[in-house]
Design a protein around this nucleic acid. Structure first.
Lengths: 351, 351
DNA sequence: GTGAAAGCGCTAACAA
DNA sequence: TTGTTAGCGCTTTCAC
């Protein structure tokens, strides 16, 4: 196999168009200060020869790498892949992220990084050194990790933080978890529920607290108590089951439960079935996350739809804008989440 | 933002270790001809400084890019992402592909390419020119596309073809579709079924025919007829429904059906329910593909598990081996598929 | 076994 | 507005 070289380089284009390398470069990068006729001539050669710049060479020349890294939690991601339970977080990130990257000539590379690791710094530095990405998208829990945030800032890499509002550098995007929880709670209140339990996610994730807040706010606004109605899980199925057990054991059992993710909701659904509680007649159920598993449950579950694809697309756009020299804003971006009503919610029995 | 340069380069390491650039390069690339003590010294400097080579620079120097492209059908992939039905082909590819790449210092980049497009060639050439990947993984239907195959071969890029046995260059890997269909059919025959219908995939996919073959072989071996029992779909839900309708309309209705993918199986399940046929009592059902949707159906479906992660991992390993100068084999690699028995198969009524 | 030179394809800085 | 020069970080020659 012959050593692979670029088939057609900027040199070929320059020769073909009878101009200098620099002029071709200017046209390729849409830099100002090229006469239209010159531009047309160069562009014609580019098209004729099918020239596409090498991103490796572009990077070497001191320009962008046209690479954006999507950093995800290694342990959780691999667990999801292994379980094959339909968790489609990564898919939706690719959906929104890849396609938006492509629009701008960028590529998205998925990278897994350990959360609870002391070599997290080394891993990240290695990825940065090897790939030299122009931007990084951080997902929870990385998006709240000061070590990562500071590292990226020091390296002058544009980055977006999805699902974190802690202060610090980086573009912040959230899916309006508080509002989503409020909407879900209000939906149940409107149906006539007064005892609405909530299963929170782990404190490690900022959004866990936001969701609790949204639930609490709606409850309070309706003059309902939340005193004994909060249980905490870790997003895993067993923890959801334990939380549901605690809520079921209350003297005045809740007639509705909102759980902070699909696995915990499913655990609640399964436990309800074992206890001979019919959903939704005896127990209304709302899930956060709208993974396929929720849609295919019996009954299909009313759920908060997380707009992961959209938020990722926004993140990419903001990173690329940040790379340019337009005006920047550091206000957090909020992408609204929606409540999709299916068949797991109805008025309480005897309500 | 300061123009980003490599924080620590080969130069720094060379200076730190008091050797030439070339020696460092040799150590990094594990080339022979370096004294152990020298190697140790250089390695110590590398570790101390946290040096990681820039893949852009490595590529520019005429070496590898350490990039492998996973080429998928754009239309189908985007449709799957949009539908959020739990199709986890891409996830499983990442699972097997990314992790295996990482083991060898490679990265996997997902790339979408149109199937039915005349600018497919341009798209692919652009990706090659921009990324200069060392290897490409082709999935169906790209893996059987002579245009793509020849293009990659001409460019001297190592590539793997998953799910295609047509002659030509490239490492071929299959998931033993024929055997899988045979196993599924034999399972039904063992249960006592004699009228076993088969819903095939579109001819565009080579594996469609293999699956039909496997079914046919098992039927013939058991002395059973397949005459009127074959229906054809296009992997989509509506086509599966139409195919199921045709099979249901037979004078001697099949007591079992094998469908070539999850959507068509689901369509069959839904239609059966509408027709008041109980699965599995009135109709046994086996699906190809083992996406979460199948596992969560009611009843959970017996299905052929496609080892996508494993086949992708193998593909990566074979591509990287192909890059080296060890011995090569061009025999197709077969990764066995498994039948997972769940609750959609039982002996036929009155059987 | 080790080092010095040249060059990969591109862009930034500067010159014309 | 356009062209020239130098250099990015690395690897491949080819000397020593």
């Amino acid at each position: 196999m012959a050593r692979r070289r670029q088939a057609v380089t900027i040199k070929h284009v320059a020769a073909d168009a009878g101009v200098s390398l620099q002029t071709v470069s200017r046209v390729v990068n849409k830099e100002p200060g090229v006469r239209p006729e010159m531009m047309a001539r160069v562009q014609a050669s580019i098209d004729a020869l099918g020239y596409v710049p090498s991103i490796a060479a572009q990077r070497m020349g001191g320009s962008r790498s046209y690479l954006i890294l999507a950093l995800n939690d290694r342990e959780r991601t691999i667990a999801d892949w292994r379980a094959r339970q339909g968790t489609d977080w990564i898919d939706q990130m690719l959906f929104g992220g890849m396609l938006t990257c492509a629009e701008h000539g960028y590529r998205l590379i998925v990278e897994l990084v350990d959360t609870h690791s002391d070599h997290i710094e080394r891993e990240l530095l290695a990825a940065i050194a090897a790939l030299q990405p122009d931007g990084v998208i951080l997902t929870p829990p990385h998006s709240a990790n000061p070590l990562i945030i500071d590292l990226l800032a020091e390296h002058g890499i544009s980055f977006a933080r999805i699902g974190s509002l802690t202060d610090g550098p980086g573009i912040r995007l959230i899916m309006d978890d508080t509002r989503a929880a409020t909407i879900a709670t209000e939906h149940l209140i409107a149906l006539g529920h007064t005892r609405i339990g909530f299963i929170a996610g782990p404190a490690e994730y900022e959004l866990s607290a936001w969701r609790v807040d949204g639930w609490g706010a709606a409850m309070q606004a309706a003059g309902l108590t939340t005193d004994d109605l909060l249980a905490v899980g870790d997003f895993g199925y067993p923890s959801g089951r334990a939380a549901a057990e605690a809520l079921f054991a209350l003297p005045d059992r809740p007639t509705a439960i909102i759980a902070s993710n699909d696995q915990m909701t499913l655990a609640t659904l399964d436990l309800a079935r074992e206890r001979r509680l019919t959903v939704p007649d005896d127990l209304s159920l709302i899930s956060f996350d709208d993974t396929p598993i929720i849609r295919l449950a019996h009954p299909p579950l009313t759920a908060i739809v997380q707009p992961i694809a959209e938020v990722t697309a926004r993140a990419v756009n903001l990173i690329i804008a940040d790379l340019g020299d337009g005006p920047k804003s550091d206000a957090p971006v909020t992408v609204p989440a929606l409540l999709t009503i299916r068949q797991s919610t109805c008025p309480p029995a005897g309500g």
